[in-house]
């Protein structure tokens, strides 16, 4: 393990308490809603916000008492914060200069890094003349130029428009995989998190609510926030070995769980009917239309009832169903697409 940290930061009406371990070459993403404490955690790691309690150990050495300028940490800030009065090259050379390299050495190193980022011809350009993607690469080069053991990235894609974001995201993933230290990345965008992270740490209200690989988390969310992020319906109930009871409903699922359990299924696993369907499908209940919105090629229908549920239906089905808010509707979920797991 290269990074082992317990980060506690207390503020009026807010407490961040977070255990974090990141291995060599591993990219851990802190994911959470705005105000969850992700950026605070990153600032604490960088030494920009003091810890109230806890410790930060990097390669077995405690660094939490060191000031920011003496930590072997590189940071890519949100908006990148490239120094506007310095050229791209001097931005990258800034760190090595401050850490004792001669001017010539620092510039040589900066030039190499810019080359590697494919920015050789932009060396003498001022930051405001760089595109978002270029600026991000300069910021990454600048952070890497100090040869950090820990690389921190705060919303590295937030400043980009949707169009370039896709391309830059995969490029960033490639560059991060080439870094052999520990990487901690903060984002509120689930897609960025899924693509960039080896492991996700989900934070809500200053505490970790779930941790795991992107696949695990996407399949088995443990909070409403995560479920919404990954686009699943999620309920908490009590398993009896056969079904999971959620309030008055009893869900039949693929898995059999006993004790506290989560039930999760995708909106596309939900079917809607104007009248009670024939036969007796399991996982059936009656609700009321709450709202309708476009969702990709489909239409997402929110239904109130014993439990709130989101269902995806095709535009063709919309006409047939008469989705007026307030109208009663029957909901059923295929047991084969319903997952249950211990809470």
């Amino acid at each position: 393990m290269t990074l082992r940290a317990r980060i506690v930061v207390e503020r009026p009406a807010f407490r961040l308490d977070l255990d974090l371990t990141v291995g060599r070459g591993e990219v851990v993403t802190l994911l959470g809603p705005n105000g969850a404490g992700k950026t605070t955690a990153l600032r604490a790691l960088a030494g920009l916000t003091p810890l109230t309690e806890g410790s930060i150990e990097l390669d077995g050495v405690r660094i939490d008492r060191e000031p920011a300028e003496r930590r072997p940490v590189g940071v890519v800030f949100q908006d990148y914060l490239l120094f506007p009065h310095l050229s791209a090259l001097d931005n990258v050379a800034f760190g090595p200069r401050c850490r004792g390299r001669s001017k010539a050495e620092a510039r040589l190193l900066a030039r190499e890094l810019l080359d590697r980022m494919g920015l050789a011809e932009f060396a003498s350009v001022r930051p405001r003349r760089l595109s978002g993607g270029q600026a991000q690469r300069v910021a990454l080069a600048r952070a890497l130029a100090v040869e950090p053991r820990l690389l921190l990235l705060d919303e590295p894609l937030a400043a980009l428009d949707a169009h370039t974001r896709l391309e830059i995201r995969s490029e960033l993933r490639r560059r991060l995989s080439g870094f052999d230290g520990a990487t901690v990345l903060v984002t509120h965008d689930p897609l960025d998190a899924m693509v960039l992270a080896d492991r996700l740490v989900v934070i809500e209200n200053g505490a970790v609510v779930q941790e795991g690989t992107p696949t695990e988390i996407a399949r088995r969310p443990r909070t409403d926030y995560v479920a919404r992020l990954v686009g699943l319906n999620l309920y908490r109930g009590e398993g009896d070995g056969d079904r999971v009871r959620v309030g008055d409903l009893a869900f039949a699922a693929e898995e059999h769980v006993t004790g506290p359990a989560f039930v999760a299924f995708a909106p596309r696993a939900v079917a809607l009917y104007r009248a009670r369907p024939d036969g007796s499908p399991r996982n059936l209940w009656e609700g009321r239309i709450d709202g309708v919105e476009r969702h990709g090629d489909n239409v997402r229908v929110h239904v109130e009832g014993p439990v709130p549920v989101a269902a995806d239906v095709t535009p063709a089905a919309v006409a047939e169903l008469d989705l007026t808010p307030g109208r009663p509707i029957w909901v059923s979920v295929k047991a084969a697409e319903t997952h249950a797991y211990p809470a």
């Binding site: 920011a68 300028e69 940071v75 908006d79 120094f83 800034f94 401050c98």
Partner: peptide
């Protein structure tokens, strides 16, 4: 935040002042 960025790059407070804040 520019000054913080400079600090994470290893700049002492005086260097931050001279090379970032002042410009």
């Amino acid at each position: 935040r520019y000054e913080e960025a400079a600090a994470t790059l290893g700049a002492s407070r005086f260097t931050v002042f001279r090379r970032v804040t002042l410009p």
